[in-house]
């Protein structure tokens, strides 16, 4: 019966579009909405004891302690992630621009080189940086002669921010490159013809057209960076820990699922809010090409 109805529906074509959507919908439901719902429920639960199953009892206290106890860690995470994002734009944009405009026949190779670090595990790359920046490394010992023997790079906020910038740099370069690549650079001739300087043409034409790439890149860097904990773990100190460290510890060491869930939800909500504000601010609407 049911199969019969289905074929009828399909023949009429009324449900066919929804049918085509279903893999995506099922995916979203199964791997995003359901887990988030479970997470949200867990965040409002209490655990009578450590290894007991949490019971759902509208425990909003998990949220108030998320702010009161970990507010400063949240702020630190967003400051680090934000700084890393800005640095990634400042370094990644000129690089992507250079490859897109001057790469010539080497373009694909150069973009390949940007991706190459991904072939190595993220963890190993981070640990490699902790070796490169170690206190007795020539780089640091040289700088110590300038800034005094107490100078160090590791276990400082800048080491963590640098690690985040480095590790997520490709996520910035690739979308910017793609949007630059789509730009018809003859537009700069048009601008020059109308009296604009090279910088003016870049600022008024090329930059606005590449903003969708900058926007995408910023999200791809900021979101994972805000939740990251490996860089803080391997390049930082107890005073530079990020919210990811706390969530990881709450989940895996302390088995405090409700608190961990509440922290995750707060992180998610704040990031979503920031993304909305950011997209409003960048006004992606007018950028459709």
């Amino acid at each position: 019966m049911a199969a019969d109805d289905d074929t009828k529906g399909l023949r009429k074509g009324r449900f066919a579009p929804y049918g085509l959507l279903s893999p995506g919908v099922i995916w979203l439901l199964l791997f995003f909405l359901v887990p988030v719902a479970i997470l949200f429920k867990a965040s409002l639960s209490t655990k009578p004891s450590r290894f007991a199953t949490p019971t759902f009892d509208w425990a909003w206290g998990n949220y108030s302690s998320a702010f009161s106890q970990y507010g400063s860690v949240f702020v630190r995470s967003f400051v680090y992630a934000g700084t890393a994002t800005v640095l990634a734009i400042l370094i990644g944009y000129p690089l992507a621009y250079w490859i897109a405009t001057r790469g010539g026949r080497w373009k694909n190779l150069l973009i390949g080189l940007v991706v190459v670090p991904f072939f190595t595990s993220y963890l190993i790359r981070t640990i490699a940086w902790s070796s490169i920046l170690a206190d007795e490394n020539p780089l640091v010992t040289t700088l110590q002669q300038v800034f005094g023997s107490d100078f160090r790079i590791l276990a400082t906020p800048w080491a963590v921010i640098g690690g985040l910038t480095y590790n997520f740099m490709s996520f910035m370069i690739l979308p910017i490159y793609v949007s630059l690549e789509k730009i018809d650079f003859r537009l700069t001739e048009a601008a020059a013809d109308l009296g604009s300087t090279t910088w003016g043409a870049f600022r008024k034409v090329v930059l606005p057209l590449s903003l969708p790439g900058v926007f995408a890149g910023s999200l791809l860097v900021f979101i994972p960076a805000a939740g990251d904990y490996l860089n803080a773990r391997y390049l930082g100190s107890p005073k530079t820990s990020m919210i990811g460290t706390v969530v990881q510890n709450k989940f895996l060491v302390q088995f405090d699922y409700p608190q961990a869930a509440a922290l995750s939800i707060v992180l998610m909500v704040i990031i979503t809010a920031m993304v909305l504000v950011y997209s409003k601010f960048l006004g992606t609407e007018g950028l459709a090409v």
């Binding site: 018809d184 003859r186 537009l187 001739e189 048009a190 601008a191 020059a192 013809d193 109308l194 009296g195 604009s196 300087t197 008024k204 034409v205 606005p208 057209l209 007018g286 950028l287 090409v289």
Partner: peptide, 20 residues
């Protein structure tokens, strides 16, 4: 003299309008 200081007006084959 560079193009931006010549005051020529150019209409390009593909128009090259600024899409933004």
């Amino acid at each position: 003299v560079p193009p931006n200081r010549r005051n020529m007006g150019m209409v390009f084959q593909n128009y090259s309008l600024f899409p933004n």
